[in-house]
Design a protein around this nucleic acid. Structure first.
Length: 427
RNA sequence: GGAGAGGUAGCGAAGUCCGGCCGUAACGCGCUCGACUCGAAAUCGAGUUACCGGCUAAUCCCCGGUACGUGGGUUCGAAUCCCACCCUCUCCGCCA
């Protein structure tokens, strides 16, 4: 959510932001509604001032036994008028808040222009794509043949877009989670938390998934509970409606959770394999920072996510999302894309964003500067560190051997009881 | 799921029966500044909610409004009366 006062006083900046995002929101309409709302508010508040003042008089008259009838009559009229205006105001407030909740964040000036994925800009790449002297297989083929990935049984248990991990794959998933959390807590200063994976509406409002993106969520029937699409939601909401001490910043949390996405509208996309699942594991990094530092913090966060891929020896590139591809709440986002030899392309494995004060305003996350009475909104950032399933995909495809076996990256072996190679055990 | 208690500032808590200078909200704690002190503790004094609108160069003042879990209702007027819902705690039941 943007600051209404900011929208009011910087309409050109908003117009430009909306244009960059190819948004069709009508700013002029909003400005008209906002003007009407303020006029109405002013009138109502004047009447309420009169009522408050007269109420005091009334109390005094009751005490002294004066005749209050004329005042009573006047107040009856005033109160009736207030009631009418309040109702009108409530309607217009709803319109205002609907509009403000539906306006996306303004892209940062460093965000490139563009319409979609194709216009994203590569920042750098890391590592060497493996040279494989055979036709590389895709992860689902490898993983299924090695007995670790079982999509058919998962389809029986639940449905499509689920996977049953067995044996080495289950262990590898768990190894990756532990490895990622260990790096972030021991080397990069994150405090680990394990939050609920079911959250209420208010939390989803706070981070911006609601009200606009209800379709993408699993909603628990007859409740206002939802399955989280990312740990960003519960972790950011730890500090909802909280004023932090300036000295406490930056706050950094990492969290492993399962994530749940309905994937509405992605029919036919990535139907094979583990790339796009309704349920997947992710280690998330969330930072609450001083507004002046948030773009430095974004680079840091990106580095923390990258370090996982480097330790695993997986080649990747970093891209800056163009304005048209930017998420609703984000002012700037870097995607990290890992190289997949089987697919012969880069695929997103992490997304690191600076939301500036967009989420903090919705969620009421502030800090008290040492030199001022007035509290300010923090800036929030988060990034995947990393998507665990896709990391497994990348390991399978990058470390595959001609015989269909897969080498375990050295750094993971302590987490895998020393296992060096995943291969089909002979019966 | 059943019974009971509760939700008021950063924390604790009074006020609710009997509606009206009781919401910058008693009292206590904490925090900030000052006095005393070589310094500290103790003591004494002062200060300390957030948001919205108006005014404004201003996130300073000043003026007004709103908020007592949430949403409605009654009333000239609601923390207080009525209705619905949410949450927390205790006990019971069920349960990993």
């Amino acid at each position: 959510m943007l600051d209404i006062k900011f929208i009011r006083s910087n309409p050109d900046e908003i117009r430009d932001g909306l244009r960059k995002r190819r948004s069709k929101l009508d700013l002029e309409q909003f400005l008209a509604i906002d003007q009407k709302r303020r006029d109405l508010l002013l009138e109502t508040e004047e009447l309420k001032a009169r009522r408050n003042q007269a109420s005091g008089e009334m109390a005094r008259m009751k005490k002294t036994g004066e005749n209050a009838e004329p005042l009573l009559a006047e107040l009856g009229i005033v109160s009736a008028r207030i009631k009418t205006l309040d109702e009108e105001l409530r309607g217009i407030d709803q319109q205002t808040s609907d509009w403000v909740m539906s306006i996306p964040n303004v892209p940062h000036s460093s965000v490139p222009e563009g319409v979609d994925e194709a216009d994203n800009r590569e920042v750098r790449s890391w590592g060497e794509k493996p040279v494989l002297p055979f036709a590389p297989k895709e992860h689902w083929e490898l993983g299924t043949a090695l007995g670790g990935l079982d999509f058919e049984t998962a389809a029986k248990i639940t449905g499509s877009r689920f996977v049953l991990l067995k044996g080495w794959a289950a262990k590898l998933e768990r190894a990756l989670i532990s490895f990622m959390l260990d790096v972030q807590t021991a080397e990069n200063g994150y405090d680990e938390v394990m939050p609920p994976v079911i959250v209420n509406r208010e939390s989803l409002m706070g981070t911006g998934q609601l009200p606009k993106f209800e379709d993408e969520l699993f909603h628990l029937e007859n409740t206002n509970y939802y399955l989280i699409p990312t740990a960003e939601v519960p972790v950011t909401n730890i500090y909802r409606d909280t004023t932090l001490a300036e000295s406490a910043l930056p706050i950094a949390h990492c969290a492993y959770t399962a994530c749940f996405r309905s994937e509405a509208g992605s029919y036919g996309k990535d139907t094979k394999g583990m790339i796009r699942q309704h349920q997947f594991d992710k280690v998330e990094l969330v930072r609450f920072v001083h507004p002046d530092a948030s773009y430095d913090e974004l680079e840091k966060l990106l580095g923390h996510a990258e370090s996982i891929l480097q330790k695993l020896g997986l080649p990747y590139r970093v891209v800056t999302l163009c304005a048209g591809d930017l998420g609703f709440s984000s002012a700037k986002t870097y995607d990290i894309e890992v190289w997949l030899p089987g697919q012969d392309k880069y695929r997103e494995i992490s997304s690191c964003s600076n939301f500036e004060d967009f989420q903090a305003r919705r969620a009421g996350i502030r800090f008290k500067p040492a030199d001022s009475k007035k509290s300010r909104l923090v800036h929030t950032l988060n990034g995947s560190g990393l998507a665990v399933g896709r990391t497994m995909v990348a390991i399978l495809e990058n470390y595959q051997q001609a015989d269909g076996s897969v080498i375990v990256p050295e750094i993971l072996r302590p987490y895998m009881n020393g296992l060096e190679k995943i291969e089909l055990r002979k019966a």
